[in-house]
């Protein structure tokens, strides 16, 4: 790939993205428009996250890429290989060893540190988009801090189902000002967004970048009588026994058999290496 610049993007493009990242950090939760470039992977497959990572990576970085919490999902593999080739950065699957983590749909279970950067891939950055399809309208709503529509929608859920019927991409309010889409992470991950690491969000097709500095106030929208509930499957991981991690449901046969395992593969492997067992691993050991 020597025909291409370090981290693929040309320097002028990187400067444009870097300026957007800095504005995003200065105005947490506000979506900064940026002239997203066509990347050698399809829109909707992480082009925003890839551009943000490309503008952020240095040759000294160690990159981890996850999709659905796993390092080995095909799109994560593909993006990791892209940066191995174009930025010649070191890569890892170990959360604590990474300096930059690009993610789709999950926040790692392990607490991140002040020296880490979490880059999210975002498909639809506008939290109000499903309520109001027009960009011209939603921009006004953010400007006027007019979020009544969102509360009405959440309240209608409660009236209809008894609960807020949003289980992922659950909207948050940042520093009591901007309503922000946390990307399609399960709502289980929402409380983790008040963290020590820098969080950067890239939406390539929609041409938006936004950011959260460390320790930024991030509150999931709710009502006093219906407080936010970051629920998950009421099981323990069948492999490592973890009761505090987000679980994938794996169908094991065609007779209704199923098991639950950690979605964060690194977290699960680490726990097993430490000797933790789950229902399945106990049986095998015996």
């Amino acid at each position: 790939m020597s025909d291409y610049n370090f981290a693929y993007l040309d320097e002028q493009t990187k400067r444009m993205i870097r300026r957007a990242i800095l504005k995003g950090l200065a105005i947490p939760g506000y979506q900064v428009p940026f002239a997203s470039r066509e990347m050698p992977m399809p829109y909707g497959w992480g082009t925003g996250g890839v551009q943000v990572s490309a503008a952020t990576l240095t040759p000294e970085d160690t990159l981890k890429v996850i999709d659905q919490g796993a390092d080995d999902t095909t799109n994560a593999v593909s993006i990791r290989k892209f940066f191995e080739k174009t930025a010649e950065v070191g890569t890892t699957t170990e959360t604590s060893a990474a300096t930059v983590i690009q993610t789709r749909h999950r926040i790692p279970e392990e607490d991140l540190s002040e020296d880490q950067i979490l880059v999210y891939q975002v498909p639809i950055p506008e939290p109000l988009r499903f309520l109001e399809p027009r960009e011209t309208e939603t921009r006004k709503m953010h400007a006027l801090e007019e979020y009544g529509l969102m509360h009405v929608k959440l309240y209608e859920d409660i009236a209809k189902h008894g609960h807020i019927a949003t289980s992922y991409a659950y909207p948050v309010k940042v520093e009591d000002r901007y309503v922000m889409d946390p990307s399609p992470i399960p709502k289980f991950d929402n409380p983790k967004m008040e963290m020590s690491a820098i969080q950067l969000f890239g939406a390539g097709r929609e041409q938006r970048i936004y950011a959260l500095p460390p320790y930024t106030k991030v509150v999931s929208l709710d009502f006093e009588d219906h407080p936010f509930d970051p629920s998950k499957a009421p099981h323990a991981c069948a492999l490592c026994g973890a009761e505090d991690s987000y679980l994938d449901e794996v169908i094991t046969d065609d007779k209704g058999g199923r098991m639950f395992v950690c979605s964060d593969t690194d977290y699960c492997e680490k726990r097993r290496a430490e000797g933790h067992t789950g229902d399945l691993t106990k049986e095998t050991a015996a």
């Binding site: 399809p42 909707g44 659905q68 095909t74 799109n75 992922y168 399960p186 097709r205 449901e249 979605s263």
Partner: peptide, 21 residues
Amino acid sequence: TGFLEHIKLPHYVDFQSELEL
């Protein structure tokens, strides 16, 4: 086409949260 075709990427984490709900 990118956004349309991206729905064939794994979405099982979000789907799981919908299942639970």
